[in-house]
Structures are given as C-alpha cells and as structure tokens.
Design a protein around this nucleic acid. Structure first.
Length: 531
RNA sequence: GGGCCCGUAGCUCAGCGGUUAGAGCAGGGGACUCAUAAUCCCUUGGUCGGGGGUUCGAAUCCUCCCGGGCCUACCA
C-alpha cells in the first residue's frame, strides 16, 4: 500500500545576490504546502535550488576573483542558511552546476533534438545581459536601453544558434489550458498565458556560443545550453531524470511548481512544450504567486524591493529580532499568496502583537497558568471529560474542511483568518463566559472545582486544536503549544482529522510546558514594544 | 494598440445575484482580572470608484468612463 505522493518545487534562484524577503515569500508559501501535505500523510518531496548556469555568475565570480564553481557553492551555502533560518523544509537543494543536472539536461535536450524540434539558425539581435534575454526594438526604452537595466549597454549579438520549435506546440498548449483549467493558477495568470499563446508563439533560441560556463549541447559542444532551457529542467533532474530512474518514476510529475508571476510564461508555455517534445509527462499545476512590496513607514509609499532602492530586508534580520514563526505568519496572513502584498515594520508589529502575542500566545499562557495555579498542573479526571463545550455551536468538521480547502488552494491568508476566528476567538470567549477564576475561588458563590477542571480541560482542547491547525504555518509555535500538555498523540502524527476526531486520553491531562524559574509560562510571542 | 486583474469602513481584506454589506486592526464606551495592561461585551465608521443597463432583486451580471497595477505587441 503506497501512500499518496506530493512533489512540489520552488523556482530556482540566481545566486548573484542574497535572498530578500520577497524571495522568501515564495519559499514560505511552498513550505506551508509541503508541511501541510506531510501532516496529512502524503509522501512529500520538496525541491529547491539555485540557477547557476548564467553569465551573471561568471561576471560576479570574476569580480570577486573566484572560480565560478567555488562562488556558486558558497552562494548555495548562504541561501540554504537563510532557508534553514526560516524553517523551509526542503528535501533537496539542486544546483544546476551539479553533475546530476548536467547528465539529465543533456539527455533531455538530445531527446528533443531527436524528435526533430531543434534546428540551427543564424540571427542577429540586441542582447541584454541583465535579463539574459534578447530584446526587440519595441521593447527598448527611449534611450535604446533595456527598461529593466537602463545602466547597461545592450550587446549586438550575431551568431548561429539552436532553436526550439515552440511554435509547433501552440495548439497542444491551448488544448492543455482548456482541458486542465487548474494547470495555471491563479486565474488571472491563466488568462494572461492563454492570451499570449493565442497571439502566437515564436521559436526560441536555446543555445549560446562562446560561453565558458554552462552545459554543453551534447551534439555540438561549441554551444552551451541557454540558461532558461536548462533551468526548467531542474524540476526533473532534481528527482533523478537521467540519473535515477526509480526516483524519477516515483516523484514525477510534480504536483505543483511554485513560481513568481514574472516567469509564468516560461513555466506555462515553454516548459510544457519542452516536456511534450521529449515525451515526458507534464506537471499537474503551476502556481504563480505575487510580489512583496516595501511600504515606506514615513511616506506611505509602496515600492519594489531592490538593491538599487536600498530597501532590501534580509529574512535573517527579522528572524534574529523576532522569530521564524513570526516572519512566516506575517507573510502568510497579510499577503494573499496569489496576489501582491506589502511589508512594513509597522504592519508587522501590529499583526504580530494582535494575532500572535494577544490572541494566540496569551490564550496559551492563561490556559496553562490557570491549570498550574488552581490544580498544581494536574487536571485530575480530565480523562473522562468530553471537551466539546469550547466549540459548542461550531461545526468543527466543517471548519476544518474549509481550512484544509483554503490551504490546498494556497489561500493561506484565509485559512489563517479562519483559525483565528473559529478556534482562538472561541477559546478566549469561552474563558470569559465560564470565568474559571471564580470557579476556583472558595470565597465566591460560583466556587466549584469540578466545573473548573472541566473548563480547563476544554481549554486544553482548544490549545491542542490550535497547535495542530497552525503547524504548517508555524511549526515551532505548534510544537511549543502542543508540548504544553501531555496530549496522547505525538504532534508529528497529529493530522487535521485528529482535530475532528479527538484521540481518547490514556491518562489525565497535566501541564508539561517549559516554565520560567519563577514557575510561570514562557511567553510564546513576547510583545513588540511600539517604537 | 490588444488583453488581463483590481478599485468594498482610516488600514488590511472577505463577500461575487437574494433578508437591513461583513471581519480583523485602529478609534470610542463598558466589564473582568486567569493571562504577555492580555481578554470579553457594546459601539463610531462605507451613496461597495462613477454613469447607464439587464433583473422582482446587483459589490455581485452587461456596457461605458475614471483611477491603479500587470501581461503582450511585425524575425530569440
């Protein structure tokens, strides 16, 4: 009995500068999906990597006086360090300068060549080294420069190159979009691609002459494979295409490629056409996320994140000051994954204090504190309590179903909102209704310790449910919260179904949370002081 | 030029043909004290960008206009 598999990828990044929060946005969104699928029992393979066969790498390495391979290896190390710091749970990290990639790549392009979809052609055009793309006259700025790289001279390139017959696949691509509307998400990106392909596709150049860095075209080593053609292939070489057939058969096709909206056409037109030509199955879907912009605190101005604008924020800066979970939460809650979002420290602090410190963190603190204070940490008899009161009036199965559906559709912000409104708010509201501090006070008429134990058992249940549901988003906080009590199932084995079908307690609940020397609960998310 | 998306309370967003348009945050008032001065209750606030149309009924569908963003445009 093999379990369902789930193979997902992120775009591979150019290693010519360190990743910023916008790059991290994509990885976090993918990671939430990966963690969610693992939690629900899928066998998951989560691939990330760096895109290294580019001229920029060589240039940058030369500036630093380094061998290109040494340079890209060091950058890969730095990237992984950043991804590790925000708990991106990738299973493998491919570098396109690796041998396994070269082998698979050459095998693939040979297949396409043998299929008759590659031909040689002479051409001359302006080339932008910044974009690593040819530019047509109409794409140029008034000064005759590339609009994206106005400080660089365009190079007039004249050479004989290999071309891929992309135009041949236009009809089959249209049929693909028609038959599988889910192939491109979200909808707006799909519309763009349909419109693009309908307007006609040109054959594309897929090789470069006179490059010293990159992968040789197997039948003509004077040419290197063009970076875009080779980059896309990481998705198959990363799971063994050409080097490990068993692994490849196991994981391919990818269930989803997570990419930025700027590279949709490469993934939704070129990539499937390449696969069709080589006779390889197509990925199931491509999800193009939006961009994160930087909102200037003082002026309110929203700008792109760019080194030249001096507004780059490194993920590790935020992680160091706050936490990985806080970082992940902000982007998943405040920025719709399929659309654009913005970052400002003000918004970050507001969201953090309200949602993480006050709602989530404090619910945990007050729950554990009361059990400690009133019952010395032991909820005697809780084994026999069915804690259904805290979610009275809530159709738990229905809510969990909606949360799961949101996550599966990458509507992460809506999933989180639901968890907050239906679970955490319910918990905090329940406390106010029940007033356990009165039930525990022998001087009050409400004094009733059994009732108090029952209320706190209900609150422990709310905490348990919250931990399971937030786990894909905030794995560390989930772990800490879940460790607050001796819940029966290890968190690693607690899927969403355990929210609906609570595993029976084998022993009475007791507090197992880590405490301060004074015997108090450690704040999960210490409040951020307003600046 | 062609195409796509968006414009809903101060802010961030949900609602996408059907009762008096919602949430969170922010603002105002109150309650409580277990808790990270947290929480809970009540509340202020919107002619749903504008005009026209379809409909018994429109943020919700059509059309035009305004504003914002994006994709694309006669040899890669």
């Amino acid at each position: 009995m093999s379990r369902r598999k789930f193979y997902l990828t992120t775009a591979i990044d150019y290693p010519n500068s360190r990743p910023h929060i916008g790059t991290a946005f994509e990885k976090i969104g993918a990671d939430v999906q990966a963690r969610y699928r693992r939690q629900q029992g899928y066998d998951v393979f989560f691939l990330m990597g760096n895109d290294e066969n580019t001229i920029k790498v060589v240039q940058r390495a030369e500036e630093l006086g380094l061998d290109p391979k040494l340079y890209v290896d060091d950058m890969a190390r730095q990237f992984k360090e950043v991804w590790d710091s925000i708990d991106i749970s990738y299973d493998d990290f491919i570098q396109t300068s690796e041998e396994r990639h070269r082998i698979g790549c050459q095998q693939f392009i040979q297949r396409v060549y043998d299929a008759g979809d590659i031909y040689k052609k002479n051409y001359e055009a302006l080339y932008c080294e910044g974009c690593e793309e040819f530019k047509t006259e109409s794409q140029l700025s008034a000064e005759g420069r590339c609009p994206n790289h106005p400080n660089q001279e365009l190079k007039l390139v004249q050479e004989e190159n290999y071309f891929f017959r992309l135009s041949k696949y236009a009809d089959r691509l249209m049929a693909l979009y028609e038959e599988r509307p889910q192939f491109i998400q979200p909808e707006t990106r799909r519309n763009e691609i349909v419109s693009l392909v309908r307007s006609g596709l040109e054959d594309v150049s897929i090789s470069r002459r006179d490059f010293t860095w990159g992968i040789d075209v197997p039948w003509d080593p004077e040419h290197k494979i063009y970076v875009w053609f080779d980059a896309l292939l990481n998705y198959i070489t990363g799971v063994g295409y050409g080097t490990d057939e068993e692994s490849f058969r196991r994981w391919w096709p990818a269930d989803v490629h997570f990419i930025g909206k700027d590279i949709t056409r490469f993934h939704c037109a070129l990539w499937p056409a390449m696969l069709m030509s080589a006779g390889v199955e197509l990925p199931r879907s491509v999800f193009a996320h939006g961009f994160v912009y930087r909102k200037d605190e003082a002026t309110g101005e929203v700008q792109k994140i760019a080194k030249s604008l001096g507004n780059v924020i490194e993920p590790m800066d935020i992680v160091r000051e706050f936490s990985s979970d806080a970082f992940r939460y902000y982007f998943m809650r405040e920025c719709p994954f399929g659309g654009d979002g913005e970052f400002s420290f003000q918004r970050f602090a507001a969201s953090y204090n309200a949602d993480l410190a006050n709602n989530l963190g404090n619910l945990f603190s007050r729950t554990v504190s009361m059990v400690l204070r009133y019952f010395d940490g032991q909820l005697t008899g809780s084994r026999d309590v069915e804690p259904v009161e805290v979610f009275a009036g809530v159709d738990v199965a229905e809510v969990v179903g909606r949360i799961a559906a949101h996550i599966e559709a990458c509507r992460y912000n809506q999933a989180l909102e639901l968890i907050w409104r239906e679970v955490l708010d319910a918990g905090n509201r329940y406390i106010e209704q029940q007033r356990p501090w009165l039930l525990a006070n022998e001087k009050k008429p409400e004094y009733d310790l059994d009732a108090c134990r029952r209320v706190l058992t209900n609150l422990a249940e709310a905490v348990r449910v919250a931990a399971i549901l937030i786990r894909p988003f905030m794995p560390r906080a989930a772990e800490t919260i879940y460790a607050g009590f001796n819940f029966p199932t290890p968190l690693a084995k607690a899927d969403f179904d355990q929210v609906v079908h609570r595993p029976p307690l084998e022993e009475d609940l007791r507090v197992t949370a880590r405490l301060t020397p004074e015997g108090k609960v450690e704040p999960l998310f210490p409040k951020i002081a307003p600046k």
